[in-house]
Design a protein around this nucleic acid. Structure first.
Lengths: 197, 197
DNA sequence: GTCTATACCCTGATAGAC
DNA sequence: GTCTATCAGGGTATAGAC
């Protein structure tokens, strides 16, 4: 028989983060209580504080982990050489990665306002550094004369918003497959920064 | 001298909605207490219940008013006849309207999860009916052979997300003027649904 | 490592005086 | 129309037993 109490620090920690991620995404950080998270995990509320100093650190940890993994994952991609291909690669990557992690994405973008200034600045910096990757692609393409851009910074903000929006409506097993969605967004993105006909 | 207490129902109601809108947008619905709203308005918490039956109705009212005004305002526009111009008109309208009301926009998009099923369905229907306006423009343009669209529904979702994202970064008095932002987004939107060069 | 118990505060909402 | 006072419940976080 399994012991009722015992050492589970290696699995309880991840379970807490997983439960918090799901609940925060579903109901919002402020609307979720530590008691709810604990109930989801199957421990008492007090036990959570063995794994996080407080509720906000739990949130900030989720955001940081997500953004760091996102950036690290992007950096493992072998860069396509042509700006056109590079942008298509970014779109595919961004959509694919985000479609698989809708909860983490939602939290990282929407719960920033629940962070105190220091933590906010830290998370915001990570987000900016990811967005800078896209902006660099656009600037390179512009310098190479492949893209026609009045303002690369604005274009990168516009594209990021467009791409991330896919998590608002995409459902596994829906009308369009993942690959189809990736290609359609890539087509729109490429056209939006291309030369006028 | 002004009376300390008296009849103010004509101004207190709007003040409550304005305070709630600002606070909900800034901190999130769940994180804001009725006492905070009351303090902002300058009344006691109990007085709020003369104007709303409960906290959630206050939220739903803000969302409904915003979306109904948005749709009504769009319908006052004289439709441009050419799909090209019509899309540009929509982009200008959408960005202009949203830039002026960042709080209402944020709430209407982000606090849906705090609504109970009935209210959620009502608000969601309003949002869909607005999105359908864009989708209709895209379909018309596709039928006229002006736009090249693999999937009008996906394209409308992509464009709405792109356009609405402007509220995340635009600041009055920033590097780009309103008119510039509207034009740059319109250019990108038009190119994204245009024929390939 | 987890539990029970609890401190202390804030929540939404209501009742009744003025 | 607004106030004060209040209720019952739930919030985060901690203390100390096991």
């Amino acid at each position: 028989m399994a012991r009722k109490t015992g050492s589970h620090s290696d699995i309880t920690g991840p379970k807490i983060r997983a439960a918090a991620e799901r609940l925060f995404a579903r109901h919002g950080y402020a609307a979720v209580s530590m008691r709810q998270i604990a109930a989801e995990v199957g421990v008492q509320a007090g036990a959570l504080y063995l794994y996080t100093p407080d509720k906000q650190s739990l949130l900030a940890g989720l955001m940081r982990d997500h953004l760091e993994a996102l950036i690290a994952s992007w950096k493992t991609q072998t860069p396509a050489s042509h700006p056109h291909d590079r942008l298509r690669q970014f779109v595919r990557f961004h959509i694919g990665y985000h479609i698989d992690r809708p909860d983490a994405v939602f939290i990282a973008y929407m719960e920033l306002r629940n962070l105190e200034p220091d933590r906010f600045a830290e998370i915001e910096a990570l987000r900016r550094s990811y967005e800078a990757e896209l902006e660099a692609i656009l600037r390179d393409g512009q310098a190479a004369g492949v893209f026609e851009l009045a303002d690369p910074r604005l274009a990168s903000m516009a594209l990021i918003a467009m791409l991330t929006g896919v998590t608002n409506w995409y459902r596994e097993g829906g009308r369009l497959s993942r690959a189809e969605v990736e290609e359609l967004y890539a087509d729109m993105a490429l056209k939006s920064v291309g030369r006028v006909a």
